[in-house]
């Protein structure tokens, strides 16, 4: 499969994520959109990694070229997991305090 497909898919996912983050007010949905963007990046990383590796594999069977990108993916997944724990905790606290997860209530940052 040509790489273009992967790229288009992940760009689409990323854009959905961005638009979601920009337009929605519900903190949980924003959170999910962030995850979506992260996964779009993951997808792209895996795809490029695979392509890169295949190219090198054609000449050298034992090559490890391109596999590093997959490490990044795991890394991102770990960070995303950490983020989920912290982020969800914040959202829960937020809900407990103001009984809402609408981020427009959270305009106290300027004070």
């Amino acid at each position: 499969m040509p790489i273009n497909y992967y790229i288009f898919l992940s760009v689409a996912l990323f854009s959905i994520g961005i638009i979601g983050v920009l337009t929605r007010r519900n903190a949980i949905i924003i959170f999910m959109c962030i995850e979506l963007m992260l996964n779009a990046v993951n997808l792209l990383l895996v795809a490029f990694s695979k392509m890169h590796h295949l190219k090198a594999f054609a000449t050298d069977v034992a090559t490890k070229v391109g596999t590093e990108a997959q490490l990044f993916v795991f890394f991102i997944m770990v960070v995303a997991a950490a983020e989920v724990t912290v982020g969800l905790a914040i959202i829960v606290m937020m809900y407990r305090n103001i009984h809402s997860v609408d981020i427009n209530f959270l305009n106290r940052l300027k004070h």
Binding site: I18, V21, L22, R25, I103, N104, L106, N107, R108, L109, K110, H111
Partner: peptide, 12 residues
């Protein structure tokens, strides 16, 4: 402004 949305917009 304190609006998280606007910060994100500026960031993007």
């Amino acid at each position: 402004s304190g609006q998280v949305g606007s910060y994100i917009l500026i960031m993007v």
